[in-house]
Design a protein around this nucleic acid. Structure first.
Length: 423
RNA sequence: GGAGAAAUGGCAGAGCGGUUGAAUGCACUGGUCUUGAAAACCAGCAUACCGAGAGGUAUCGGGGGUUCGAAUCCCUCUUUCUCCGCCA
């Protein structure tokens, strides 16, 4: 959520920045500033009425204390005139507040300067491409066929027991999955991230805190009886640890990591994109979350990007980094780098990580602040990134490491496994 | 799931209808004293919004109500604790 003070101060700059998302938000922002102005007027009117009636109430208190009952009763009658006025003003003020709030919820974060303008993924900017395309002697199989051939992932069984998009991992497939989780967590640990095992369900306040609610309500599984939501990413519980928190000073850098399964309804996505492991309703991911001083967030973003690069290089995967254009940028993000690995068998790039800086957008909703040198509270910057999402990494590993003898295992994973080949 | 008790500032803990944004203690910050430290003493120390400022308004778990006036009374929700039941 954008800060209202920022909208007051630099509306035109924000409108200009938001244009990179391919949408003109000037009607909304103009409406907000107009509503804000009448809100301020009404509010100060309401407060002066409140002030008056508070004064009289205090007087009554004094009179009662002094035993002057009759005078007190006379004063009581005075307050009647304020009653109605106060109530009307209160209603008006809170209605205006609601309207402003609603509009604010619908305005996405402003892209940073270096974010390219654009409408869709076609406008994303390729920042870097690393590694070579794998050469195969024959025709490589896609991962869903390999999964069947070696009996390591069972999609049909998932359909039977739960539904599409909920596969079973089996035998060496399950172990490889576990090894990857371990590897990612240990790498995060080495980089100084504190590991958490968070709850897999969150309440409504947490959903609002990180921006899933109300914008993306349909994306989450909702346990209506208890009004809890299955997490779409561990970003939600991890970041919400710091909801309504004021950090005591300027000297902080909070680095968290967590492995969780993630649950996404993915309503409306069908076709070849969802084949095999490409898109699932439940998938595993190791997430990095950082809370940083605004002066330090750019550096943190760079560190996270480098961390993810390191992981992909250790796994020996060909990858590229994209700077997402305005139109493809997530609602809450100011800048996002997507990592894609090349699936040689599917002949396409698969997104495996997304590293984002939210600046104060998320912190504003979370009310996550720190106390600056002037003893004032100031919003923190938040960041997160996947390091990494498992299914597509698994897909790429299976496809790119296939040989006539079986699927080889990258060396870095060997210490987490008791086999060196899937055959 | 059933019965009871409770929720107050960073922490502990008063207040149970009137001048209380909230006693007191601890913690913290600044000062005096000291060669330095400790101790002692003095001062400061919640958040948000409106306002150029003076100042004002709101907030004592959340929401609603009674009242001229609510931290204090009522309703409701949530959470915690104790006891009983069930259980990995």
């Amino acid at each position: 959520m954008l800060e209202i003070t920022r909208i007051r101060a630099e509306k035109d700059i924000l409108i200009e920045g938001l244009k990179k998302r391919g949408v003109d938000f000037s009607p909304q922002l103009n409406e907000i500033t107009a509503l804000d102005e009448s809100w301020r007027a009404k509010k100060s009117e309401m407060e002066s009425v409140q002030s008056e009636s508070n004064k009289i109430s205090k007087e009554i208190g004094k009179l009662m204390g002094a035993g002057k009952i009759e005078e007190a009763n006379a004063a009581k009658e005075q307050t009647a005139q304020f009653k109605l006025k106060e109530q009307t003003l209160k209603d008006e003020v809170s209605k205006l507040e609601e309207q402003i709030q609603e509009l604010l919820y619908d305005i996405p974060n402003v892209p940073q300067n270096i974010v390219p303008a654009g409408k869709s993924e076609d406008d994303n900017e390729i920042v870097e491409e690393v590694g070579q395309k794998v050469q195969f002697s024959g025709t490589p199989l896609p991962h869903w066929e390999l999964a069947k051939k070696y009996d390591i992932i069972d999609f049909e069984l998932g359909v039977k027991v739960t539904g599409a998009g909920f596969p079973f991992y089996k035998g060496k497939g399950a172990k490889l999955q576990r090894a990857l989780i371990n590897f990612f967590l240990m790498e995060a640990d080495k980089a100084g991230y504190t590991e958490y095992i968070p709850p897999l369900m969150v309440n409504e306040a947490s959903g609002i805190g990180t921006g899933q609610l109300p914008d993306k309500e349909g994306q989450m599984y909702h346990a209506t009886k208890d009004n809890l939501f299955l997490i779409p990413t561990s970003e939600v519980p991890l970041t919400n640890i710091y909801r309504d928190v004021i950090l005591p000073g300027e000297d902080f850098s909070i680095k968290m990591t967590g492995y969780t399964p993630n649950f996404r309804r993915e309503a409306g996505s069908y076709g070849s994109d969802v084949r095999g492991l490409n898109r699932l309703h439940q998938f595993d991911k190791v997430e990095l979350v950082r809370i940083e001083h605004p002066d330090n967030s750019e550096k943190a973003l760079e560190e996270m990007v480098n961390h993810v690069k390191g992981l992909l290089e250790k796994l020996g995967l060909q990858y590229r980094i994209l700077r997402l254009c305005g139109g493809d940028l997530g609602f809450t993000s100011a800048i996002t780098y997507d990592f894609e690995v090349f699936s040689a068998a599917q002949e396409k790039w698969l997104e495996v990580s997304s590293v984002s800086l939210f600046e104060t957008f998320q912190a504003n909703r979370l009310k996550l602040r720190f106390r600056n040198a002037n003893k004032k509270t100031q919003l923190c910057h938040t960041l997160n990134g996947s390091a990494l999402a498992l299914p597509r990494i698994l897909a790429a590993l299976l496809e790119n490491y296939q040989t006539p003898e079986g699927i080889e295992i990258p060396e870095v994973l060997e210490k987490y496994l008791n086999f060196k080949i899937i055959n």
